[in-house]
Design a protein around this nucleic acid. Sequence first.
DNA 1: CGCTTGCTTGGAGTGCACTCCAAGGTTCTA
DNA 2: TAGAACCTTGGAGTGCACTCCAAGCAAGCG
Lengths: 155, 155
Amino acid sequence: MIDSTTVTMERARQDLCATEPRHPRPDGQDRYTISEVVASTGLTAHTLRWYERIGLMPHVDRSHTGQRRFTNKDLDWLAFVGKLRLTGMPVADMVRYAELVREGEHTFEARQELLEQTRRDVIARMAELHDTLAVLDYKIDFYAGARKASESERA
Amino acid sequence: MIDSTTVTMERARQDLCATEPRHPRPDGQDRYTISEVVASTGLTAHTLRWYERIGLMPHVDRSHTGQRRFTNKDLDWLAFVGKLRLTGMPVADMVRYAELVREGEHTFEARQELLEQTRRDVIARMAELHDTLAVLDYKIDFYAGARKASESERA
DNA sequence: CGCTTGCTTGGAGTGCACTCCAAGGTTCTA
DNA sequence: TAGAACCTTGGAGTGCACTCCAAGCAAGCG
């Protein structure tokens, strides 16, 4: 019999790494250099170090000489951060979310709220874009029509 | 008989002022102070002066003492610029469009292309947002489920 | 072993889109 | 006609999200 605590923890474990397919290396050997992460995320090395400095990354593991070694979990986190970035969420808010994750399961409610606010922002933004599209189409039609008219004039 | 030149010019006249309903003042008495424009556009006076300085506004008419007096046409232009801004278009590109408008009808093709590129950008952005929405919903459902599970555990 | 390429740090610099300031002239209302 | 509220300018400042730099250690290869 599986009790609900187990279920909760299993879901919590998924929390950081359930949204993306799978990364190249098999588990147990997931220690990527910064340049490998640059190649797979499209972020620059500068940005990755900066993310760590401001607390947007959990502290990244290091080699015996102090060089960063990223894990699959880090890549999953970066993929999710990339999605948040696409929503237009400010970096400060993403850092807030990262802090909540670090604080543990008792912040589930706060995290859900933050994500729901983001969701509302995304929907509002999509509506805005939808409206601009109408104006754009109106103008484009106007130019297309005006050009056709001046063409037939020349003919 | 109306020749096609007349038609073209009539459309050209509409070009700057056909996308918005109508502004408060009756025609012929459309000379708004900067603070009236602030009130009706939501932009700051600083921003309005800055728009003029960088060439994003056609040169605004002045009172005999040098204060700005905006016209309905200026308000229409600002409304359209507001739409372009909502698309995320950089100010430099909007200035480029404004330059094309100043250059006259022979830039219709270039203007249409610029707007069509913007349209493609808007559609791409909407698709991105649509994708992030799926991730957001996935996470929100996860938190909702986890919280419900830990509630029933407590019960 | 030497060479090239890669990684480290703190701190300074960049580009964008505003945003504000000081000092002074203008306009409106009582 | 006095006072408040509004307007003008060039230039400097702000906040965000990176972006770059110098100086020096680390890693992999023939």
